[in-house]
Design a protein around this nucleic acid. Structure first.
Length: 431
RNA sequence: GGGGGGUUUCCCGAGCGGUCAAAGGGGUCAGACUGUAAAUCUGAUGGCUUCGCCUUCGCAGGUUCGAAUCCUGCACCCCCCA
């Protein structure tokens, strides 16, 4: 078997993923033999988010190309806080919090990287494991000695903070020493020779390379990726409701799918190149389709599919698509309680007594007020008059009709909708 | 300390004794259109037991058949003179 199935550098190059490289001969160096590559992740939350997707996906691509990926979770560095790209001092995380975060991230990485494929199986490490026992004196002697302060002061991440009112603490100032040492440690432990990172990590990456040369007399390499931004310059991965996470507990597969479906035409080609495994020909074909028939949104659909499948698997993608159909007005029939809860997991719901359905039943207007979709019955009346009142995705026809037991989609649930896609559930419970 | 102006429904802002639940704009909501985009167009926009009733126009009283509109007092804000 060919140890290098494809030219990773050329692949990254056409995808536009090479922002900066520390060595001109990077391409031949990578194609010479399998290398060990690492990327660091900040454990600031118990889940990765869209911002981590690009480095993670790139690491994965390195693995597919025969190289060995190492994902390092910054358990130690996360306790310090990286000043790169931050305008203010970071809050320190507690050890418990970090432990929980690392556990969450570990599981998500397993969906992207193969941890069991022989020679180039992925490795996951936590720098806290080797940093925790490092004494301050030892660290200063072994590592600190190799860092000229004048060089440290010249780094952008430090310079920008020195000039600002926020200043920078000694702790954050020391951050780059820790990250640099990670590289050295990974080299000693796993023969790791290449560090990947976002373009904001350039300073930290080169610090690691310098340290490798000084401490080990070894040539290490670095590569930075562009930041994933939208055409208007804003960050990718934020919605009105907040960050888009990879964890299904925080962002449901449906929401994730929807996020990508809604990507702007101007950004979608870049996302396909950066984040999916689609080949050049396929992406160009999609670009062509988009130009010819933008309204079909083939690109967005494909993007959403690829990413959702990658993160949540075939099952997650299926659920997201089914939820999409239902959200956009498909019949809600013979739907199991479980499916319904999954589809509408992001939708507000209210519990009410099942006895309301006895006798004449529950007036539609009352149902909408109960569910919180209308502030008053007057508002519900208006909604009906304007044709925006739906029960189980059917436009309600008769304002005097009441909701009875047979309207329920599952033994307990009624799906109410105001307008095109504002949903709420009413759950009828026995008392 | 003296003089003047203001306080209106989610916001801005008309209204200055009945025809005022209160113009207009913004926002919001719905409908149409559409690519789950943007724009546009239409309608709605205090509550309710809705052909009617109830509560809103800084607060409290008063005058009137009737007040957001007039009078008195109070609170807060603004401007001018000292």
């Amino acid at each position: 078997m060919n140890p290098i199935p494809f030219d990773i550098y050329a692949d990254l190059k056409w995808r536009g993923l090479i922002y900066q490289s520390t060595d001109e001969k990077m391409q031949s160096w990578l194609n010479e033999k399998p290398r060990t590559v690492y990327v660091g992740f900040d454990p600031t939350a118990d889940s990765l988010h869209i911002g981590s997707l690009l480095p993670l996906q790139t690491l994965r691509r390195f693995q597919l190309a025969g190289h060995r990926p190492v994902a390092i979770i910054g358990g130690a560095t996360g306790m310090i806080g990286d000043p790169s790209g931050k305008s203010a001092e970071r809050n320190l995380l507690s050890e418990d919090q970090l432990q929980a975060n690392i556990e969450g991230m570990r599981q998500q990485m397993a969906a992207m990287l193969d941890f069991d494929c022989g020679e180039n199986s992925a490795i996951l490490v936590n720098n806290y494991d080797w940093m925790k026992s490092f004494s301050y004196i030892d660290f200063l002697r072994d590592v600190g000695k190799n860092f000229p302060v004048n060089v440290m002061l010249a780094k952008d991440s430090v310079k920008s903070r020195l000039g600002s009112d926020a200043g920078i603490s000694y702790t954050e100032f020391s951050y780059m020493l820790l990250q640099a040492y990670d590289f050295v440690h990974l080299h000693q432990e796993y023969g790791c020779e290449l560090q990947l990172g976002g373009s904001d990590q350039w300073g930290n990456v080169t610090a690691g390379i310098d340290l490798g040369r000084r401490m080990l007399s070894k040539q290490l390499y670095g590569l930075t990726l562009p930041l994933l931004t939208k055409a208007d310059g804003s960050k990718m991965g934020k919605t009105e409701t907040g960050t888009v996470w990879l964890s299904s507990d925080r962002t449901s597969p449906y929401e994730l799918y929807q996020y990508w479906i809604r990507v702007d035409d101007a950004d979608v080609s870049k996302c396909l190149k950066y984040l999916t495994d689609l080949e050049r020909g396929e992406i160009e074909e999609l670009d062509g389709l988009r130009e010819a028939a933008a309204h079909q949104r083939d690109s967005q659909k494909r993007l959403a599919e690829e990413i959702t499948r990658q993160i949540h698997g075939e099952e997650g993608l299926k659920a997201a698509k089914y939820a999409t159909d239902v959200f956009f007005g498909a019949e809600i029939n013979d739907c199991s309680e479980r499916d319904l809860n999954a589809i509408f997991s992001d939708v507000p719901s209210q519990q009410v007594s099942k006895s309301l359905l006895e006798g004449d039943g529950l007036a539609v207007y009352d149902a909408f007020v109960q569910a919180g979709l209308c502030k008053s019955k007057g508002e519900a009346r208006r909604l009906f008059a304007q044709g925006g009142l739906y029960v189980n995705n059917h436009r309600w026809a008769d304002e005097d009709a009441c909701i009875k037991k047979d309207h329920l989609v599952t033994p307990t649930t009624l799906v109410l909708r105001s307008g095109k896609k504002k949903y709420a559930l009413l759950k009828f419970e026995l008392e």
